[in-house]
Nucleic acid binder design. Structure first.
Lengths: 147, 147
DNA sequence: TTCCTATATAAGAACTATTCTTATTTGGAG
DNA sequence: CTCCAAATAAGAATAGTTCTTATATAGGAA
């Protein structure tokens, strides 16, 4: 899985600075590191993975800080919590409209894009006020298929 | 939320009998009760809810049996594990092709149907072998909107 | 029907993901 | 630099799920 382009990562970090300024949240080292970790990869890592990676550079960071920071980032709209496959929430810093291919064997989630975005179906207003639409394709990724 | 029609429940129970016969799994009282509980409602209940309801009629049923049975039913294709909203898996015995409206406030999941099913998008084969496609609409349900 | 045994179960301990508590530290305004 | 509300570290607590072990039972065989 290829990494996110450095310019894109830099732009995402700039959004973080802006969002902190706008909401009055402090721009702590921990927030920088945690967001950077999510922003630089497109593997939709879970909290434990992020915790371990951040801990390599910041050995005293705590679980709580990682979970709390991810929740804050989600509130600020900088990351999205993605469907959980087996008990663990996963996070995605890709703000573009996109969809997910979920491997039902290993849980890996890959982004894909549609040429034409589907519209919110008629009849949804009976159920509630729609805010977003996402297509999820489930299947077995190539890696798992080849064992 | 209206209940599932009795004839439909009966048909789902018939599928269970068939599936048990085909796979050599035993048709235990617990499996009957647990599946019946999922099959008769369309609220996509979570395991704890199912546990409590089954326990009313079967006071000694254990958590483990409920979780284990739901996993077996999923393997047999009789129920589907639905995206978790806040840590809890939810289950759905509606075998028809359908899609979900998820309330991001209360977690309630409602089914909806599309007049025309979307096809698996081109380009997915790069990621893996697709098996199913589901549209998820997120928003706030009427109940939550009116507090 | 009764017997047999692999499969399933109950009970509760254990495990895993996440959140809470409390004492301490720190970003950033003034 | 000083101050303090906000954020953090550490680890306890909680919630959801799975595992362990002794017991029970579905369903085939006799």
């Amino acid at each position: 899985m290829k990494a996110v382009a450095p310019s894109e990562v830099e732009q995402r970090l700039e959004y973080l600075r802006l969002a902190c300024r706008n909401t009055g949240m402090r721009m702590t080292h921990q927030r920088m590191e945690i967001f950077h970790e999510v922003a630089q990869c497109n593997e939709h890592p879970d909290a434990e993975t992020i915790f371990k990676r951040v801990r390599e550079r910041m050995p005293t960071v705590s679980h709580d800080t990682v979970y709390r920071t991810l929740a804050s980032l989600e509130e600020m709209g900088l990351v999205r919590r993605v469907e959980t496959v087996a008990g663990r929430a996963r996070y995605d810093a890709n703000g573009d409209t996109h969809h997910h291919f979920v491997c039902t064997r290993c849980g890996q989630i890959s982004d894909f894009y549609l040429e034409q975005e589907p519209s919110i179906p008629k009849g949804i207003e009976e159920l509630g006020r729609a805010e977003s639409l996402q297509v999820q394709v489930r299947g077995i990724c190539h890696n798992c298929k080849n064992n």
